[in-house]
Design a protein around this nucleic acid. Structure first.
Length: 791
RNA sequence: GCCGCUGUGGUGAAAUUGGUAUACACGCCAGACUUAAAAUCUUGUGGUAGCAAUACCGUGUGGGUUCGAUUCCCGCCAGCGGCACCA
């Protein structure tokens, strides 16, 4: 059959059948919410990674639907972002138009690949009716004190002219364009995700993510436990009298022989400006120079380039609170102002970095323990914290690797941040009834040279009245990061057309949590963490009914190019799913991708193996067509094969074991070609293949005389009695080595004595027993027999 | 350096509450059909020895537990992914 004709035909018919894949808010059937990460609709169209991931989700959704569930399987567009903006700048086109073209293209490609999305729930993060609620969430964050404006050094990409989060800097370079990142001070909106750090760790207990994903989240949050300890500064002329440090090893306090503060530490400003301190001008200049150099470097450079420690003495001394010894305070860029308190106590005897520093600058090294390996550190730390609390010099504390989330972007193509700066009232939220704050159309999309968003050039946008006092005020011109639209989209799918709330509590209660969330490994930390944070925050506001958004996280693998490298345009190894589908048909492409290997695995594209799948589908089709007028009665041989298939497929699909499910289908066809099949079994066979190959099965289903869609039929149930073999071949081993096989009936294999006795009579077994004594007879029912012999 | 993962035929891979290792597919060999080729179909295909029955070896590597280990434990080697002066 011509697959193109079939594909066109069924695409048309399915499009008319609006209820085929509809998720029903009112149904009494059990709900299943299957979610694929929604894509960024790029100009180059759907790539293999998308096709692979969505096929995996689609098979599961189709399977769950056939199993009698009310399935929510939605799709949408994470459409804000730099590539579209850059394209718009280059081509002098509106990002809105470009996005429309790209999403239209993506939608058509998805329909062609037969993904069973409920298109009535399609969402788009760039739709004002959608980002109205993204803005609303920001207002709630601000009201809860979780969003604040802060002048802070940020990673600055000179090429994109944008501030980057630490997470967006890879190897000191901009994640998107690869330019070297420098540092720059900009006033930014920052979201206090750190306040939820503990909750984000604890909440994992309520999910069934695989350990790998949980561990990735825990590591990213990076909780360390220890103590904060206060050191007095001995120079009376210093305005700052106290230096607080965080340490995981408070038990080594008596070995602290110096302190180190980050160059950005507030203490340093005091030194440079305070001319009464007992340091020479020369020393002051040295400090100034060091701080200046350190500030120029990005954090990445500082950490990367630091093969050798650098630093300068600050001229100040602190008092070690445990022994009242005066110890010097040094400045070094290996201490990060953004971690802990930005200052450390240095214990060179028990810390490698401190040791290196001490050796370079000739600072004393004092051992706390003769042999640290023999010490129960956890126990000593516990005792030390008690002591520190009793002495009133500090308290137990934890610190996190996780940092607050920089939420401002100086770009056009993002959600406007709904904040207004009033000279009298300060930062004020926009009134909710004025949302959405719609992105105005502008002439040019480039950020300004001083790094401001192009929105800052639109006076009618910037100038506004203060929602609080009614005075003249100015609107924020920064926009939100990509993550903002994607961290709550799964809520909107539950109630996508609601214009009163982001989603009604009732529909959220109906659908949440997401039963299976399918996405890439690369989103196991950032996107997953951000969206869990927003979800937890909204849970606290009683907007959502569940503490966690996702029950199970499924992270799919990667498809490499035929050359075993990651697909990229520069390597010329990109496989376009649409092209392959045009050549072999959609069903072949879908099945091949699922047959390549385990769904979570990394594997290379190989068109030879694809031919195997194509052959199978051709043979399958021929087989069914030959059976169309089949009137045979059911028979046991066929029932055994079919019921084992039902059982095996049901189990495999449930566990995303698509490669083995397809292997079983292939094996099943091999078996069936040798025996007689009846009409009912033919229909079962078609149903089993339906989630994988929706076009061919639908066509054959209609050719075998059915008027309904195979995709709205119910999944077959295996009959127990056909799952047990009447006759079983048991391996018989002597001392663990298999020597023969014993054929027994399912009745016979229940009695150990009989089975063992029969085994001993086998020719090959007898041979091995000559002159030996049996010392042990092991029989695992239905599995195997092992005779342990001696002599 | 730290965290996580992986290692099975010529290739992609199956099999783990410990029970016949290599299912399914690719490739390859031989055969059928064909003037021929492609396509299709049939058979074979872990290694060594043997006409064969069969025997021995075999899941990165060295040990251990066990009647029995691809599966569990310990050490090592190789590769992949992530993080990295985090106090």
């Amino acid at each position: 059959m011509d697959f193109k004709l079939i594909e066109d035909k069924w695409q048309r018919i399915w499009a008319e059948n609006k209820n085929l894949y509809k998720a029903d808010d009112k149904s009494d059937k059990p709900k299943v919410y299957v979610l694929n990460e929604f894509p960024y609709p790029s100009g180059s169209g759907l790539h293999v990674g998308h096709a692979f991931s969505f096929t995996g989700g689609d098979i599961y959704a189709r399977f769950m639907r056939m199993r009698g569930n009310n399935v929510l399987y939605p799709m949408g567009w994470d459409a804000f972002g730099l590539p579209t903006e850059n394209y718009a700048i280059k081509m002098k086109r509106k990002p809105q138009e470009v996005t429309k073209e790209n999403t239209d293209n993506f939608r058509n490609q998805m329909k062609k690949l037969a993904f069973s999305f409920d298109w009535e729930r399609e969402i788009n993060t760039t739709d004002p009716q959608y980002y109205k609620w993204t803005q609303w969430i920001f207002i709630k964050l601000f009201e809860a004190g979780l969003a604040y404006k802060k002048e802070m050094p940020i990673n600055w990409c000179p090429s994109c002219k944008i501030g980057l989060a630490n997470e967006e800097v890879v190897d000191g370079k901009c994640e998107r364009c690869g330019s070297e990142v420098s540092r720059r001070n900009i006033s930014q909106w920052v979201v206090k995700i750190t306040k939820y750090a503990d909750r984000l760790i604890d909440g994992l207990k309520d999910t069934s993510f695989i350990d790998k994903v949980k561990q990735a989240q825990i590591n990213w949050i990076g909780k360390s436990e220890g103590a904060k300890i206060r050191f007095q500064i001995s120079d009376v002329r210093s305005q700052i009298k106290e230096l607080e440090v965080f340490t995981t090893r408070p038990d080594t306090l008596s070995g602290a022989t110096f302190m180190v503060v980050a160059p950005e530490h507030e203490l340093i400003n005091g030194i440079i400006d305070n001319y009464e301190l007992r340091i020479t001008n020369e020393e002051r200049e040295k400090i100034q120079e060091y701080v200046k150099q350190a500030r120029k470097k990005s954090e990445m450079e500082r950490t990367e380039l630091n093969k050798e420690k650098t630093g300068v003495f600050s001229g100040l001394y602190a008092i070690n609170p445990i022994n009242n010894k005066e110890i010097p305070i040094w400045i070094s860029d290996f201490v990060l102002v953004s971690y802990g308190t930005g200052a450390i106590m240095s214990v060179p005897a028990h810390d490698e970095r401190d040791k290196e520093f001490a050796q370079k600058f000739n600072l004393p090294i004092i051992n706390v323990y003769d042999d640290e390996k023999k010490v129960n550190v956890a126990e000593e730390v516990k005792k030390a914290i008690e002591l520190i609390i009793n002495k009133g010099i500090g308290e137990g504390a934890s610190s996190y690797h996780l940092r607050d989330w920089i939420f401002s972007r100086q770009h056009y193509w993002g959600e406007p941040i709904p904040m207004i700066n009033c000279p009298k009232c300060g930062w004020v939220t926009e009134k909710e009834e004025n949302l959405p704050i719609v992105l105005p159309e502008v002439e040019a999309y480039e950020p300004t040279d001083d790094g401001l968003s192009p929105l800052s050039r639109i006076e009618s946008f910037v100038n506004c009245t203060c929602p609080k006092c009614g005075g003249v005020a100015k609107r924020e011109t920064d926009t939100m990061p990509n993550w903002a639209g994607s961290d709550w989209y799964f809520m909107r799918y539950c109630d996508p057309h609601n214009n009163k709330e982001l989603a009604s509590f009732d529909t959220l209660k109906k659908w949440l949590p997401v039963n299976v969330y399918i996405g890439g490994d690369e989103h196991n930390t950032l996107h997953l963490l951000y969206s869990r944070f927003i979800h937890q925050f909204l849970y606290d506001l009683k907007v959502v009914p569940t503490p966690e958004p996702y029950a199970v996280r499924m992270s799919h693998g990667v498809i490499l190019g035929p050359d075993n490298n990651r697909m990229s345009k520069s390597k010329g190894n990109v496989i376009v799913p649409e092209t392959v589908a045009d050549k072999y048909g959609v069903d072949v492409v879908r099945m091949y991708m699922m047959f390549m290997g385990p769904f979570e695995g990394t594997m290379a594209w190989n068109e030879n193996t694809l031919m195997g799948v194509k052959r199978f589908l051709d043979r399958f089709e021929k087989y069914i067509i030959n059976q169309i007028n089949n009137k045979s009665a059911s028979n046991d041989d066929c029932n055994l094969v079919i019921n084992k298939l039902i059982f095996g497929l049901t189990k495999d699909i449930n566990e995303f074991g698509y490669n083995t499910a397809i292997a079983k289908l292939m094996g099943g066809l091999n078996d069936l070609e040798k025996i007689k099949i009846d009409k009912n079994s033919i229909e079962v066979l078609l149903k089993l293949l339906a989630p994988f190959a929706p076009y061919i099965t639908e066509e054959l289903w209609s050719q075998t005389g059915n008027n309904n869609s195979i995709h709205s039929t119910s999944w077959p149930v295996a009959q127990e009695k056909y799952l047990i073999d009447e006759v079983v071949k048991l391996p018989v081993a002597i001392n663990g080595k298999v020597r023969d096989q014993l054929t027994v009936t399912s009745e016979q294999l229940r009695v150990k004595e009989n089975v063992v006795a029969m085994a001993k009579e086998l020719e090959n077994v007898k041979k091995w027993l000559v002159g030996k004594t049996i010392i042990k007879e092991i029989y695992v029912e239905g599995k195997m027999i092992n005779l342990v012999v001696k002599g």
